[in-house]
Design a binder for these strands. Structure first.
Lengths: 143, 143
DNA sequence: TTCTGTTGTAACCATTGACAGTACAATGGG
DNA sequence: CCCATTGTACTGTCAATGGTTACAACAGAA
């Protein structure tokens, strides 16, 4: 199973928002054009990013902008903003194991800390990468 | 999005296979009873684990057994066995970004190595945990 | 050989989440 | 008051998951 394309899509549009902030009004249609994704999808995504405090969106007049310094927007921030975090857990348990079985009774407890370590490892790495890194790499391609 | 419950389910049944190997014939029905999951689901899962060389399943006579020393079965082995690996990539890209846009044209390249680092971090942690660790923890609960 | 319990699979169904697309009311600057 | 734009409701398609029934293939035991 894969992490939904909302994540890479979000990185893409935030990068766009910064890259084109001086030359264009960055609307959902503008972003839809760069990503080749339906404008409504973009708006919904912007809504999630706004809720997370990562971007600002102008109702009425239109246009979205980044709400923080680029090096303070980590991939983890974006990941948590766009992936269903109320689920929170990366790993999914089969519910209702048999309590009469010693394995079924304890498997959840035993796995919990181990799987948390895995999730932590992933999140640590995610938090070490920021949009500033993306912009820096992008500049190389634009030379 | 979550990693499918096949993963935790697989850890569960492999743990069962070892725990009960001396006292029971470990059939798909037996495993279904401990996990509270349909026997057919178990058989399909056993098929994947067998293909990966982690377990052996006896046709006809019935019963499944672990095919390797427990400390040589890592969570990564199991993860790769049961998660669609032909996909391979943890992160999913929106396809067809606009090549006329400098961001759309380069975003995939820019993100690839960064996201690979994240995936690597997760897989490293997964490969550091083995079924032997699970069994060791289980023993504590059984005292 | 026949009987028996089991595996491997096919076929089908229900549910869920992702992503797409249409439509339109609400918004706020010009 | 316009008008471009956002926010959101509703509908639809598609793929993956997990469940269930059914049954042929299998291998050991009687």
């Amino acid at each position: 199973m894969q992490i939904s394309s909302r994540f890479t899509l979000a990185v893409h549009i935030i990068t766009c928002m910064d890259t084109f902030k001086n030359d264009y009004k960055v609307t959902s249609d503008f972003l839809a054009s760069s990503t080749n994704v339906n404008p409504v999808i973009i708006r919904r995504l912007l809504g999630q990013l706004k809720t997370a405090g990562l971007v600002e969106v102008a109702r009425g007049s239109g246009g979205a902008s980044v709400a923080r310094p680029l090096d303070e927007i980590t991939f983890l921030d974006i990941y948590k903003a766009v992936e269903c975090v109320e689920c929170g857990e990366l790993f999914h348990f089969h519910e209702n194991p048999n309590n009469k079985c010693p394995v079924g009774r304890n498997i959840h407890n035993i796995l919990d800390d181990k799987l948390n370590r895995v999730q932590q490892a992933m999140e640590n790495e995610l938090s070490s990468i920021t949009i500033a890194d993306v912009i820096k790499d992008l500049d190389k391609y634009l030379v």
